[in-house]
Design a protein around this nucleic acid. Structure first.
Lengths: 193, 193
DNA sequence: TATCTTTGTGAGCGAATACTCACTTACTTT
DNA sequence: AAAGTAAGTGAGTATTCGCTCACAAAGATA
């Protein structure tokens, strides 16, 4: 699971290409150009293109997991909720090319292994969001009018669409600002009155 | 804008391939195989692959627009909301291969024209959803605690994620049943108490 | 009957794709 | 100093891609 510096560089370059030019743009030739070396050199660091994508998904999953694990503890559900999404918006705001993490859907067809990696990424996000929402419901901060699962899907769906909009508008608007509005709206909607 | 029978067949076949095998699966060879004739025959009906995709997006946009326009009028916002999403779930339940309409994102990189077509599709959906939500807020049926725009995004995001789940699970669960739950949950959340 | 139009075919073209291989070069280890 | 290793190169491979073209069969039109 360890990764060399060059491998990380390749992962970053691949993410950049994916975000800028989509799946069809991610070719070995383009990747080589982005890295300023030859195509064959890439195969010194990864055995196949699929391996690069898998390593990327894995890196993203671990990265997200780590960031969400290290959020401040011992706060109330609302603050936790806020912190979690602020962290997400903050990260993607700085690392726009990693939105692939949210839109990995586009890679869905490539291979079985990649599909599994996408599932894993989704599971990581769920792992953090679900208990947070459930806890909030228990403490009567979030509404119990609908089930935890449904509430989680409303929140996750809204987040995903927000990121989609950002990408569609070519990262032109301020994600943090717009994200904060989204957080407020969602909280207004799901908090008990 | 008129479309021949063969062209429609090609659009259907293309949608099937896209849904089953993703963007990378949509090749002229695969399309020809699905149609049971030669590759060159395809070019009797469309001048390029891009044209096929554009025609597909156009067909989908018109199709959705028509279906949502013909919904029963003169009902209250809640019933309208319910009817609108029931119609959507019902349609996709019968025509699973057309989920491309919801996940056209994967095509995003292909070309400028295709990007415009994706935007148009999004606009069509918005055209129907936005006034419905706004009307509901005006009539004090839907909450005014957050703006119409934000409310629309919550609803659309949740819908998209629902469809995403359905696709991820290989269309195995009952979309209509699960969709009804989603409608109930959303209404519970956005209705004034 | 003769001609035109429509819709199919198969062969093949140029470009792009992922990947391989023999090779250099530079640094580390012995 | 000698040998091994890590990391680059350029040329080349087989395959696949979208697409073109000369041609054929069949039905509509003159």
């Amino acid at each position: 699971m360890e990764i060399t510096l060059r491998q990380l560089e390749l992962i970053e370059a691949a993410s950049k290409i994916l975000t800028k030019s989509g799946t069809s743009g991610l070719t070995i030739k383009n990747l080589a150009r982005e890295m300023n070396f030859s195509e064959s050199a890439i195969y010194r660091h990864f055995s196949s293109k699929e391996d690069i994508i898998l390593a990327m998904m894995d890196y993203l999953a671990e990265n997200i997991d780590e960031r969400l694990t290290n959020l401040p503890k011992n706060t109330n559900p609302e603050e936790k909720f806020r912190a979690m999404f602020e962290e997400q918006f903050n990260f993607f705001s700085k690392n726009g090319h990693y939105v692939v993490a949210v839109f990995s859907d586009g890679l869905m067809d490539e291979s079985l292994k990649i599909n599994e990696a996408i599932m894993k990424l989704l599971a990581v996000k769920m792992k953090h969001l679900f208990p947070l929402i459930a806890d909030g419901q228990e403490k009567n901060v979030f509404t119990k009018a609908i089930s935890t699962e449904e509430l989680v899907y409303v929140v996750m769906g809204t987040f995903k669409l927000q990121m989609y909009k950002w990408r569609l508008f070519n990262f032109e608007f301020d994600l943090k600002e717009s994200g904060n509005k989204m957080i407020d709206s969602l909280l207004t909607l799901i908090k008990t009155k």
